[in-house]
């Protein structure tokens, strides 16, 4: 029995196993080992967990992998009779599947980390303050949402680059920075920084996950609008 077109696109993308299955895990492992070495070299305080930040490598790798998924694989897929819509849905399904797996690894890692006293050296590799808080399933959901977000954001950048080249991509990045600057100006003008600081201080992991999910929806809409008129 032949698989559905979306599953076929996922299988097509997974032919490049190194990019999608090896690279994120390899970077996570490399970050973990590096953090262990760094903590061994730096004298720590007593009792406090030491947050190391090596896990940040994984979302960054997902950003790059997302861009890669549309850089060279997309034109060949279109040659082989895949529509843009099906390709986009297939790549998004792959992002979701990868993020479910990595998110679960993060949630399990967090449990093990807590049970072993931070791997015996007080290291907080999987426990990210404010973000990966609460029960295991919430950590899973949050990690998954962050990873999907980064993949889809990378994919949108890759699509903009394919359509408009370097000038368009630069303008795309500049427009986002401009929007942030404008928002900061508006916040200053409206004396809103106190409220923003209050919100960030009180927001829960659940609330933050909801906000990130909304951003994913916006990125997906933008990415789909970009791929719709793509020519190769």
């Amino acid at each position: 029995m032949r698989s559905t077109p979306i599953v076929t696109v996922v299988r097509y993308l997974l032919l490049d196993r190194v990019t999608y299955l090896v690279l994120p895990w390899a970077w996570a492992a490399f970050g973990f080992v590096l953090d262990v070495v760094v903590l061994q070299l730096i004298p720590g305080g007593h009792g406090d967990d030491r947050w190391v930040g090596g896990l940040v490598a994984v979302p960054l790798v997902m950003l790059v992998v997302g861009a890669q998924s549309v850089a060279r694989a997309l034109p060949f897929a279109l040659t082989l009779g895949v529509s843009r819509r099906t390709y986009f849905l297939g790549a998004t399904a792959l992002a979701l599947a990868l993020s479910v797996g990595f998110g679960l690894a993060v949630a399990i890692g967090r449990i093990v980390e807590r049970a072993t006293g931070g791997w015996g050296i007080g290291m907080a590799y999987f426990r990210v303050p404010h973000l990966l808080d609460g029960p295991w399933y919430l950590s899973w959901l949050t990690a998954m949402t962050v990873l999907v977000l980064m993949f889809v954001y990378g994919m949108w950048y890759g699509l903009v680059y394919r359509r408009t080249g370097l000038p368009g991509t630069t303008a795309f990045a500049a427009a986002q920075l401009g929007a942030l600057a404008l928002a900061a100006l508006v916040a200053t003008w409206a004396h809103g920084w106190t409220d923003i600081g209050h919100y960030l201080g009180t927001v829960t992991a659940t609330g933050l996950t909801g906000v990130l999910a909304a951003v994913v929806a916006i990125l997906l809409t933008g990415g789909f609008a970009t791929i719709r008129r793509m020519t190769i």
């Binding site: 032919l15 060279r72 034109p75 060949f76």
Partner: peptide, 9 residues
């Protein structure tokens, strides 16, 4: 196409 783009495969 003669100038076909292929993935890194």
């Amino acid at each position: 196409r003669d100038n076909q783009t292929y993935p890194d495969l």
